[in-house]
Amino acid sequence: MIRVLLTDDQPLVRHGLRVLIADRPGLEVVGEAANGEEAVRLTAGLAPDVVMMDIRMPGMDGIEATRRITAGSGAAQPKVLVLTTFDDDEYVYGALRAGASGFLVKDMDMDQILAAIEVVAAGDALIAPRVTRRLIAEFAARPATTPRQLRRAVAGITTREREVLTLVGRGLSNTEIAEQLHITMATAKAHVGRLLTKLDARDRVQLVITAYELGLVTPTTGSVG
């Protein structure tokens, strides 16, 4: 059973999600929070598998709450899945940098939202292609310089791994990467795994951000740089 904590300052949104999640086999809501501070406190007490997190809330916002919730380590660490509006571009990027495993927009089909909870709970990262190129591309390239630690880590990756990182940054799946580079699916998956380790990335979302920060993908088009 996947345990879910709902975080949103609108009671109606929380109620709607609770009702829909209750009808999904394998999912259960273990608590509700109206702001980031409450989400951090309830996460510590209830140990949910997934925290659904709004961004704009009174008091502690979703970005700071995400940073605190994901600050620990270990397989049992809760995953944060941002649920916000499409207009909150910069806030969403900030949440990904803070450690969120993905994000959704509130006008998505409910079945997609419920499926996303399962994906994130399984340890994968959710990157919606339409949002990846439009949001992450715009904001990930904003820092004027690449952190020294990241530059050192990137120096240790191979040419092939750099190609894979670029394709990950463009939002391609492992299957698509394998087709693009004419390699097997297992090889593509292995390259992604090594990148996660070498770049100390939490998940695929952070690899996407890294690809943009390094300039491997052009900010506004999602094309190779």
Rank of each mutant, 00 (worst) to 15 (best):
K79T: 03
V29G: 10
R152M: 11
R130S: 15
T145M: 03
Q112W: 09
E28Y: 00
A76C: 03
M110L: 13
T221Y: 01
Q112A: 13
L196G: 11
D203M: 08
R160W: 04
N174P: 09
E161Q: 15
P11A: 09
N174R: 07
S223A: 13
G169E: 09
T158M: 07
I55P: 00
M1C: 05
V92W: 00
D111Q: 09
Y91E: 10
G62C: 06
A71N: 00
G222T: 11
V131K: 01
V154E: 05
V131C: 05
P11H: 02
I209K: 03
T146H: 04
L81W: 05
A22N: 12
L27T: 08
L27F: 11
G45C: 02
E28T: 08
P129Y: 05
R24K: 14
L181Y: 07
I127V: 15
D87Y: 02
V40H: 01
Q77S: 02
G123H: 05
A121D: 11
G123F: 07
L114K: 01
H15S: 14
V168I: 15
L27P: 08
G156A: 04
E28F: 00
A75Y: 02
E37Q: 08
L195P: 06
D61Q: 07
M60N: 07
D54R: 00
G102M: 11
L12T: 15
T66V: 12
G222Q: 03
M52E: 06
L214C: 14
P129G: 07
Y212E: 13
A34E: 14
L6M: 10
P147G: 13
P219Q: 04
T84N: 08
L83H: 00
T85E: 10
M110I: 15
P11G: 04
R67S: 14
P25S: 10
E213V: 13
R67K: 14
A128Y: 00
A33S: 07
A125S: 15
A128R: 00
A76V: 09
A140L: 12
L199K: 02
T158I: 09
T197D: 15
L216H: 08
R142F: 11
P147T: 14
T66P: 10
E38Q: 14
L216R: 00
I117G: 06
H15G: 04
V224M: 10
L6D: 12
R67D: 12
V80T: 07
E138Q: 14
L42C: 05
I157K: 00
V19T: 15
G99C: 12
K79G: 12
I21F: 07
L135G: 02
I209V: 15
P25A: 13
L216W: 12
E161H: 03
H15C: 05
V50N: 03
S101C: 09
D203Y: 06
D87K: 00
I209F: 09
R151I: 13
E213T: 13
T166H: 01
R24L: 03
V51L: 09
D8V: 11
I21S: 06
D61L: 09
R148F: 11
A44K: 10
V4Y: 07
V168Q: 06
I55F: 02
V80S: 04
D200F: 04
G169W: 08
S223L: 13
A75C: 01
D54H: 02
R14Q: 15
D124G: 08
A141R: 04
L17K: 02
L96I: 09
L46C: 08
T221L: 06
L12Q: 08
A39D: 07
D54L: 04
P219H: 04
Y93V: 09
T159R: 11
K79L: 06
L5R: 00
V120A: 06
I183Y: 07
